[in-house]
């Protein structure tokens, strides 16, 4: 009797352990399944197009399947978004920590927390509004006298529905509430002894910030910015609304953000799904969509790896 009780006691904990282990393997299995599925589905594209997938022209009718324009589009839109979002969220983090007056820090933290609850589709639905308010009068010549328009017929490529600039602005609005808590943590976790040493030597707050706190937090900050890049890269709804689905060529000149250059995510949407329905657009184009997904996945892994490495370095630095 005693023995059986002991056995029962021993068997109950192991149930918890085994159940937790099985559940814990679900994310690993899911990730492996995702990678396998993407690789299998993109084999047709690799077989058919081969190195043609890495050329600069995308024209399915002509048998050209270069994905470099889409990759360039991703780079451009993330660049615009980060140029706006990174300084603003860094300033917010600085204001919440070292330059806080009264309740300013608390107000900033709560506001950013609340704004982080806004889903991306809201920003996406705002694309036409931002176009009318900002892009239209500034860049598309809304309200332009007709005589001037006639003179400028050679520039028929005016941004009509959207542009990379618009997508970048909207993504930056999504990124700011996401980034500022991360940067806030990175700045907050700099040990107070460093600041005290700097203050005791007679440095003012600004000097301490630029010469002590920011250099000490640089790996944490760059890790957070990497996560921001990752989020901006994977955003599909905002770019679908604000940039559109047209990929053809790399823009000329290269950094022309007034043109709409569709990024990788919209290519996946456009060609894997055949324009938003279950009738896929032919096996080859579906496979190319999957290949674009694979490229995006590998890029994400690379950035995530760098970010994780930087974060561990940041942690080890102040471990003692």
């Amino acid at each position: 009797m005693m023995q059986r009780n002991k056995q029962q006691r021993k068997s109950i904990p192991s149930v918890i352990k085994i159940a937790a282990m099985i559940l814990a393997l679900i994310p690993v299995v899911a990730l492996l399944a995702i990678i396998t599925s993407l690789a299998l589905n993109s084999s047709k594209a690799i077989k058919t197009a081969g190195w043609g997938l890495l050329t600069t022209t995308f024209n399915p009718a002509g048998g050209q399947y270069g994905l470099l324009p889409a990759m360039w589009g991703t780079f451009l839109v993330v660049l615009v978004a980060m140029v706006i979002a990174a300084p603003v969220s860094l300033f917010l983090a600085i204001l919440a920590n070292d330059f806080s007056i009264g309740f300013l820090g608390t107000i900033i933290r709560w506001t950013m927390g609340i704004l982080s609850g806004i889903p991306p589709i809201i920003y996406a639905a705002m694309a036409p509004v931002f176009f009318v308010v900002f892009i239209g009068p500034k860049f598309a010549g809304a309200g332009l006298p007709e005589a001037t328009i006639l003179k400028m017929t050679q520039y028929s490529d005016l941004p009509i529905n959207g542009s990379t600039l618009l997508g970048g602005i909207l993504i930056s609005l999504l990124l700011i509430p996401f980034l500022s808590p991360l940067l806030d943590d990175a700045i907050k976790n700099v040990p107070y002894s460093l600041k005290e040493a700097s203050f005791s030597l007679g440095a003012d707050r600004w000097h301490t910030l630029t010469h002590v706190i920011l250099p000490a937090a640089v790996s944490g900050i760059s890790s957070a910015l990497m996560l921001g890049v990752l989020t901006g890269m994977g955003e599909a709804m905002i770019v679908a609304f604000a940039i559109g689905f047209e990929i053809g060529k790399i823009p000329q000149p290269l950094f022309d953000i007034l043109k709409s250059t569709a990024p990788l995510t919209t290519v996946i949407v456009g060609f894997s799904a055949g324009g938003f329905s279950l009738d896929l657009s032919g096996p080859l184009l579906t496979s190319i969509g999957n290949f674009a997904g694979l490229v995006l996945l590998l890029l994400s892994f690379a950035i995530l790896g760098v970010s994780t490495y930087l974060q561990s370095r940041f942690k080890n630095r102040f471990a003692s």
């Binding site: 814990a24 393997l25 994310p27 690993v28 899911a30 990730l31 399944a33 995702i34 599925s37 993407l38 589905n41 996560l227 990752l230 890269m233 994977g234 955003e235 599909a236 995510t265 996946i268 949407v269 894997s272 799904a273 279950l278 896929l280 579906t286 969509g289 999957n290 997904g293 995006l296 996945l297 994400s300 892994f301 995530l304 994780t308």
Partner: peptide
């Protein structure tokens, strides 16, 4: 396990969408 959970969160939702679609 920690890396794969983080990676699930970090990879674009659109990748999960095409997996679901296929």
């Amino acid at each position: 396990i920690r890396f794969s959970t983080t990676a699930l969160r970090a990879i674009s939702g659109i990748i999960l969408a095409i997996i679901a679609l296929s």
